Simulated scan of single mutants.
Amino acid sequence: MVPSLPLVLVHGIRLNRAAWTEVVEHLPAGRPAVAVDLPGHGARRGERFSFEAAADVLGEAVDSVGGRALVVGHSLGGYAAMAFAAREPRRVAALVVAGATAVPTRSGTAPFLVAHRALSGWADGGERVSARVLRAALPRRTADAVARAGIASEVIPDAVAALRAQRPLDRLAAYPGPVRFVNGRFDHLRADERRFLGAATRGSVVVDPRGGHYLPMTRPRSFVRELEAFAATGIRG
């Protein structure tokens, strides 16, 4: 990687910074990295989610590691990372976007609202059933860490409204730096991968043949290898 270039890691919808637990463990020794909680998630539960508020959080994180970073976003975090890069391009040395190459549409985001209505019927907001689902999808240690920090199903309506209102291809086109899309072959959110690649000024894509939507969490060693390869060949300073 570029010497001393820090990472800012941005999680997906309902999760929290603990989702990056095993990715951080596989980073090279001495690589600075900070994982954030998006508004409405983790330690920020109760805050309203918007992409402007998310960009403020990312700005604070970038400042905490020296003012410039490689920003890595998964799912909702990928859309947040693109929005931040469009707003603050000088502070983003490069972007890695995983599981966020589908243009959010009403039909595409509707299942999240259906899930929210179902989860809201539980006394705990569906937190226990969500934890069971995560344990089936993610490595147990990561799933347990995320569950301990809280699974924020209540943020879904705000997140869906924000996704529907934004124009991610325009945000992406506004950022002049290098972008690497890292997707799992079986990820449903790579439907518009080629459109996102075409919108990026300096874009490239890698598809993990064994990965799904939760690629960074389920295959952390492989994901970190892609981060290292990208930073070694695609970023200059």
Rank of each mutant, 00 (worst) to 15 (best):
D37T: 15
R141T: 10
A123K: 12
A35K: 10
A173N: 13
A199G: 10
L38T: 00
P39W: 13
R185F: 10
Y79H: 07
F181V: 00
G77K: 03
A229V: 04
V206G: 03
D37M: 15
R90P: 00
F49H: 10
I235R: 03
P176Q: 14
H116F: 15
E88V: 14
T218Y: 09
Y79R: 05
P111S: 07
L163P: 06
A162T: 13
R210M: 03
V23P: 02
V65S: 04
A232K: 14
F230L: 10
G77C: 06
P178E: 08
R91T: 07
A191L: 03
A152I: 10
R167N: 10
L163S: 11
T109R: 15
E127S: 10
E193T: 00
A143T: 10
G30Q: 06
E22D: 15
G198A: 14
A231C: 14
S222C: 01
R87V: 00
P89Q: 12
A85F: 02
T21L: 15
A143W: 05
S130N: 06
V96M: 10
V205M: 12
A131I: 01
R180G: 02
A159M: 04
N16D: 10
A152G: 08
D208S: 08
R185G: 01
L15T: 04
L15Q: 11
R195W: 05
P111V: 06
L5W: 07
G46N: 04
V57W: 05
D144V: 08
P104W: 07
G66C: 15
E226K: 05
W122G: 01
Q166L: 13
V155Y: 13
